[in-house]
Amino acid sequence: MFASVLLLATLAIAAPLAPVVEERAYSQVSTAELAGFAPYTQFARAAYCGLDGLKNWNCGQACSALSDFTPTLVGGDGAKIQQYVVGYWASKNAVVVAHQGTDPTQLESLLTDVQVLQRQLSTTLFPGISSSVYVHSGFADQHALTASVILAEVKKLFTARKTSNLVLVGHSLGGALAEIDSVFFALQLPQATITTRTFGLPRVGNAAWAEVVDAKVPDFVRVNNRKDLIPIIPGRGLGFAHPEGEVHIVGTGDAVACEGNDNASDGKCTISSVPNIFGGNIIDHLGPYEGIYIGTIFCT
């Protein structure tokens, strides 16, 4: 997660305050749908655990909750390169790619977060991507470090397991990498059926980028927890925008699905609930996501 209020204030520069408005029609998320996020939350949680635990799939409660998952590739160091795990999830007949979020004790990981200048994406990794698309340079650079090796493993598993189902998961910076992965795999493996679930996701790119995510990845959900302030940064005033798919946890057993990109109209959605970083609570970034907390300290 991002480590300091000073850093958060920097990232939130020029973010316009959402007006106080009357609530309009949002969709209540059913109890069953909310409970259905739990396996994805556990994958996001597991990605923070040590490499040995990931290799052996012995990372405490998260791995125990996903006993039918078999890891085939793990990597990263949690600092210069975020940890990641790739493998096969039998009950969903799906390949899973999960990325670790920011470890606040690792300086190099924090430096990735603060590289907020936007840049264009590599046309080698993102063939056919429009020149109007810009993304957070730190996130793009981090993604590029592992894109090719993860792509090769996913291709291998698709062939070995005779599936084209792909699940992409992450929390915080890991969620940003999962969002970039969503478009990356949609372009590189057009036969893939992609499911993306992110938790505590910061904004990743400009409005053109958000439109690409919306067009290429229809099964994209970003879960925001209560007063978590990470989803409102970097600020909209810096040219950043979220794609569609927001689910905002209001309280235990209570969540709403918010229409559109960066919904600032519905009173229960994130922008109205956290109009600026001073109205947020960084502890909510860790959870609970329906009873599940995410972060290095929860790898037990």
Rank of each mutant, 00 (worst) to 15 (best):
L17M: 11
A18E: 12
P19Y: 05
V20P: 01
V21C: 13
E22M: 10
A25W: 08
Y26E: 11
V29F: 03
T31H: 12
L34P: 05
L34A: 09
P39G: 08
T41S: 06
Q42F: 12
Q42V: 00
L51H: 02
L51A: 08
D52H: 01
G53V: 06
K55S: 13
N56K: 15
N58Y: 02
C63T: 11
C63N: 01
S64G: 11
D68E: 09
F69K: 01
V74I: 13
G76S: 04
D77P: 03
Y84L: 07
V86D: 05
G87M: 04
Y88R: 05
W89I: 01
A90T: 13
S91G: 11
N93H: 14
A94V: 06
V95R: 00
A98V: 02
P104V: 14
T105S: 15
S109G: 10
S109P: 07
S109W: 06
V114N: 03
L121F: 09
L125Y: 10
L125Q: 15
F126N: 02
G128E: 11
G128V: 09
I129T: 06
V135W: 05
S137L: 03
A144P: 09
A144Y: 06
L151N: 10
K156Q: 14
V167E: 12
L168Y: 00
G175D: 03
A176K: 06
A176I: 03
L177V: 06
A178T: 04
S182Q: 01
V183Q: 05
V183A: 12
V183G: 03
F185R: 04
L187V: 01
Q188H: 08
Q191S: 15
A192Y: 03
T195P: 00
T196M: 10
T196H: 00
T198L: 05
G200F: 07
L201G: 01
L201S: 08
P202C: 08
V204D: 04
V204L: 07
G205H: 05
W209I: 04
W209R: 05
A210P: 02
A210L: 04
V212K: 10
V213P: 01
D219I: 01
N225R: 06
K227P: 01
I230T: 14
I230Y: 00
I230R: 02
I233M: 14
G235Y: 11
G239L: 11
F240T: 08
E244K: 15
E246W: 07
H248F: 03
G251Y: 07
T252H: 10
V256Y: 10
A257R: 15
N261K: 14
N263H: 10
N263A: 08
S273Q: 15
V274Q: 02
P275G: 08
I277V: 14
F278C: 00
G279H: 12
G280W: 03
N281K: 10
I283T: 13
I283P: 00
I283C: 00
D284Q: 05
L286A: 14
E290W: 02
E290A: 12
G291V: 06
G291R: 08
G291Y: 07
Y293M: 11
I294W: 02
I294D: 02
G295H: 04
F298S: 06
C299S: 09
